[in-house]
Nucleic acid binder design. Sequence first.
DNA 1: ATGGTAGCGCTGCTA
Length: 257
Amino acid sequence: MKLVTWNLNSIRMRMARFVAWLEREQPDVVCLQETKVEDAGFPTAELTKLGYHVATFGQRSYNGVAILSTQPLVDVTRRFGEDPQDDDGDARVIAATTHGIRVVCLYVPNGQELTSDKYPYKLAWFGRLRAYLDRTAKPTDPLVVCGDMNVTPDDRDVWSPEKWKDQIHCSAPERAALQTMTEFGLVDLFREKYPDTRAWSWWDYRGVSFFKDQGLRIDVIFGTKSIVDRTTSVAIDRTARKGQDASDHAPVIATID
DNA sequence: ATGGTAGCGCTGCTA
């Protein structure tokens, strides 16, 4: 089965291209980020017509996540489910069980820059994520955690480690925070398969970054060991980044037997 | 040299 993660940067702006892509690629599970719409405005009916079960967790203007699946979405949860006092109102986490796999779809806070107050918030968010995984899953489960991590796991995931040194998405504290999540028992499926491949999933809209292939790999599919053992391929479809009305992110596709 | 582009929604914030 094919599982996809894709930051669409507004599902309403992307819908025509997205539907064409779904019809061509026929994925079984799709995790979406930055849908940027409240649930009432999400194109659920159109996707249902294409044969997908749909679970959404959106908000006005910012953030927003969703999961599509050709099989029913069971035990759908939204947020970390921590003490309501800890809820910040951001729609960044949705999870469901489908195709026999627990799927967690994430839109990690961007952080803006290292001096922003959003940066310590981002670092702390990974601690909340780890606590959430500890509460709700086991490393022996068939578990996928995927999404826009807004962190490059290491310098292999950066077009110019020199230019990006100590910049947002690439700082050591962010990478350490991401590691607190993976130490739950998660493996980066792309990096496991391709230790030496340098490939990007995001290119800045500004300037010539896509034209010059100056990108970062920040969209990642992680899996527990049982998922790693079943994964036959992982690909980033950079053609989806080309042309008019493209998201600034490309979809990442894992094939899991 | 703090640019540059895109989306939301209506002024500036977020990325």
